[in-house]
Design a protein around this nucleic acid. Sequence first.
RNA 1: UCGGGGAUAGUUUAACCGGCAGAACGCCUGGCUUUGGACCAGGUGGUUGAGGUUCAAAUCCUCAUCCCCGAGCCA
Length: 559
Amino acid sequence: MTTETPTNFIHQIINEHNESGRFEGRVHTRFPPEPNGYLHIGHAKSIGLNYGTAVKYGGKFNLRFDDTNPTKEEQEYIDSIIEDVRWLGADWEDRLFYASDYFQQLYEWAVQLIRDGKAYVDHLTAEEIREYRGTLTKPGKNSPYRDRSVEENLDLFQRMKDGEFEDGTCVLRARIDMESPNLNMRDPVMYRILHTDHPRTGSAWCIYPMYDWTHGQSDSIEGITHSICTLEFEDHRPLYEWCIENLGIYAPQQIEFARGNLTYTVMSKRRLIQLVRDGHVRGWDDPRMPTIAGYRRRGYTPEAINDFWDRAGVAKANSTIEIEMLEHSIRQDLNQRALRRMAVLDPIKVVLVNYPEGQTEELDAINNPEDESAGTRKVPFSRELYIEREDFMEDPPKKFFRLAPGREVRLRYAYFITCTDVIKDADGEIMELRCTYDPATRGGDAPDGRRVKATLHWVSADHAVDAEVRMYEHLFSVPNPYDVPEGEEFTYHLNPNSLTILSGCKIEPSLADAKPGDRFQFERQGYFCMDPDSADGAPVFNQTVSLRDTWAKIQNQKA
RNA sequence: UCGGGGAUAGUUUAACCGGCAGAACGCCUGGCUUUGGACCAGGUGGUUGAGGUUCAAAUCCUCAUCCCCGAGCCA
């Protein structure tokens, strides 16, 4: 038995169970996805909570697919979910299960209930069932088929299973209480007829159990102690307990918690599917999607995602967390581990007029100031360079510290340079900057102790590699995308600038060796992850998140 | 209208049996800096409301208010 410091109300409940001996000190959780879509970051909360709880108490964690509705479920989703849960770091060891593994047992239990007079085959139509159910305020009334004999029910249920009836002709219902104030207890449907092949059981079954008739018993079979689910199942708990009690089987404890929402994000599977199907994004793993696959491609780490949910906490109050908190977690993680590289996203050429033509130097650059073991690398330097267009202003405002006519700045790990000339084309567009460099400042330090207010990143023009860089903004332009004018859809606030593709970016040559999935900090810009779309000699990077940017903040304040 | 849940800084949360409301993110200052990054120091800001019990209430009691979920042969 362990009593751990509770970090949330669920752990407190577990401590109480451990003290009372309810589960003999056992802790066994599970993550039960329905394979009808890709996992999103909200699921990561549940995965982290279930797996983290098991680890905390030295217990076990199962992965179990809730695959009871073959009309919506697909193998593609099963595969992606397995990959995502594994990527997030949750370890189910050899306990990968499917609710469909239990179809036979569930069927036998249904027969048991029929024998006990606690279930019956109902021939009411779907619409009639709805009418008979009553409303939130009005009690329901009994189906005329409710009092069929055990023999008749047994026969009918057998024939349902044997495929004698078409979809929708009848259902098996639990016989509970049509007047219950809890609508879930008004004779809930246990089985419906679906002549649809199942991804795992094929055509073996044409009747499929409903969630309420499956979930609790699956938990029970697996010896789950704490069946953690979201708030909307609170009303189902009495039914969950009814099934188990009337079957006389081992009883786990269902506990509900609030799912977490994010600002600037929609998270329901229905909406996500729509974004994919209607082409608002490039697929389930589009880096703008809040899916696990999307975040992975974007460059997020599982550690950052788990850290984020740890910080967010677990409670029963509905909440929408500011996306800045997620961004903080990924910045913090990547700051520790990402190698630094220089990349010029919007290049402008700089010519060092006093630097010898044809000369090239190899300068030392630190790979990660936060991690000495990451070492250093050589970066080529020459007479013609690229710097960031926005790092120069011809007529700089007061707080602009970067390059300007007559001003001296440092090129990182290289030299101090001073801008002497601005070359423009006929339209007045700046084409090139002419600068002088100070040979005494090699490496970036002035022996005379003189200081500059800015350090710029740069790339040698002759040695630069061209790259495509995909910059992202939030998929939605407002914190609450659901807040739309009367009659408008949730797509109303879709951000037209959520993706900006930059081509002709100039990146330092060492980046040519990168592999898809590799993450870097582009100095002074942010974190970037190489995209699988990359080809030999044609690298593509996704912006994971920008660096914190006080200059941008100053500019925004003025705007 | 019936049933079930919930309400603590801008956001997300902590506060055991009633005992100084604490943190993270954000925001604002300042320091430091070869990334306007990172880091360091400081600051702003809160118990939904009204009563009651108590030496003492976020916590207990009463009455309100507001929010979420529920009428799939979805999960």
